[in-house]
Amino acid sequence: MRMGVILGDVSSSVSPREHLDGLLRQVEAAQRNGLSHITMGQHFLYGDLRWLQPVPTLARIAAELDDHVTLATTVVQVPLYHPVMLAEDLATLDILTRGRLVVGAGAGYREDEFTALGVDFSQRFAMFEESLQIMQQMWTQDTVTYAGRFWSVEDGHTHIRPWQQPHPPIWIGAMKDRGVRRSARLGDGWPITPETRGPELVRLLSVYEDERDRLGKPHVRHPLRREVIPAPTTEAAYARFEAMAKDRLLAYAQRQLATRDADEISQQFREVARQETFIGTPDEVVAQLRDFAARFPVDPVLVRAQWPSMTSDEVVAYLDDLGRDVVPAVAELESVARVVRDQAQD
């Protein structure tokens, strides 16, 4: 199993120079510590937090990319673009990475972003599917003619083909049955959110695999979005996660726990952490990852190293801990799994 990092937002009070310097430090630390994927999501008009746009940012990171690392958009909001423009941007990015790009694509979920950009939020899923069809034609055909509900292309002569053929792998985000079936039908993997766990994860994976079977497509492994929090003791790991994600803790408290005292809020947060993260001593974290990998077809695991309240030094220290205590053991799990599969095939 591999591990990667998702680049997140920072406070808008951080200067653009500090933001870029911290971002490049994080990328260097992630690569140095053996992480295999550097990924980035997308938001618009994000208020007090700054979220850099993924395509130009990943293009800059491509100049720093080590041979073992893949870049991914997790996820780009497809309906907010004209598909010809997005197809050419992503094909360009695939070239700049020398074919080490995964296109993570989604329909979006914040209505205010759609309203600001003049896009009908209620039509986002239909727009997503139509856009993806045009993009795939743009990546594989010399000439594209397409007449759809939302976009039309007449005798469009393509001029940018991706490095990868026929095109980069596509991860399609989803949270409900219909979206998971869409992901199975149109993509090459389903990014699993931290909130999707337990019986619901089992059920949705079954939905995905049933749809792949119906279409005669092979089963795949899915990127898993989860925090991985190692520390010398279990108690220190929970304290570390509270410090990293304290803004999330406060927001959660304001929404649901405003009448409770600090000890109750902390206990509730720890219960959420227990369910949504791999947390504890390095040995405990690796055991949790081993158990999860034995039950579910996941790869890579994507962590968030940068939270808005963290300094660059804290981000690098966290990635150094992952590289020393977790990444090598997780890579061994993958090696063992590969040997088992190879022996079964023999």
Score class of each variant (00 low, 15 high):
residue 206 S to V: 13
residue 207 V to A: 06
residue 208 Y to K: 06
residue 208 Y to C: 05
residue 210 D to C: 07
residue 211 E to T: 06
residue 212 R to Y: 07
residue 213 D to I: 15
residue 213 D to V: 15
residue 214 R to L: 13
residue 217 K to P: 07
residue 218 P to E: 14
residue 218 P to M: 11
residue 219 H to M: 12
residue 220 V to P: 15
residue 221 R to V: 04
residue 221 R to Q: 12
residue 221 R to I: 00
residue 222 H to Q: 09
residue 222 H to V: 09
residue 222 H to E: 08
residue 222 H to K: 03
residue 224 L to P: 14
residue 224 L to D: 08
residue 224 L to N: 11
residue 225 R to T: 01
residue 227 E to H: 13
residue 228 V to H: 02
residue 229 I to R: 00
residue 229 I to D: 00
residue 229 I to M: 05
residue 230 P to C: 00
residue 233 T to R: 03
residue 234 T to R: 03
residue 237 A to M: 03
residue 237 A to N: 06
residue 237 A to T: 12
residue 238 Y to D: 13
residue 238 Y to S: 14
residue 238 Y to I: 15
residue 239 A to M: 01
residue 239 A to I: 06
residue 243 A to G: 08
residue 243 A to N: 13
residue 246 K to M: 08
residue 247 D to W: 06
residue 251 A to M: 11
residue 252 Y to L: 05
residue 254 Q to I: 04
residue 254 Q to H: 06
residue 255 R to Y: 02
residue 256 Q to D: 10
residue 257 L to I: 09
residue 257 L to S: 00
residue 257 L to W: 08
residue 257 L to Q: 03
residue 258 A to C: 12
residue 258 A to R: 00
residue 258 A to Y: 00
residue 259 T to C: 15
residue 259 T to H: 14
residue 260 R to S: 12
residue 262 A to E: 11
residue 263 D to P: 00
residue 263 D to G: 04
residue 264 E to R: 05
residue 264 E to D: 11
residue 265 I to Y: 01
residue 265 I to F: 01
residue 266 S to C: 00
residue 267 Q to E: 02
residue 269 F to V: 07
residue 269 F to S: 14
residue 270 R to G: 06
residue 271 E to R: 09
residue 273 A to K: 03
residue 273 A to I: 14
residue 274 R to P: 01
residue 275 Q to L: 15
residue 276 E to M: 09
residue 276 E to W: 10
residue 277 T to K: 15
residue 278 F to T: 14
residue 279 I to L: 10
residue 279 I to T: 14
residue 280 G to H: 08
residue 280 G to W: 02
residue 282 P to W: 14
residue 282 P to H: 12
residue 285 V to S: 00
residue 286 V to L: 12
residue 287 A to L: 11
residue 289 L to K: 01
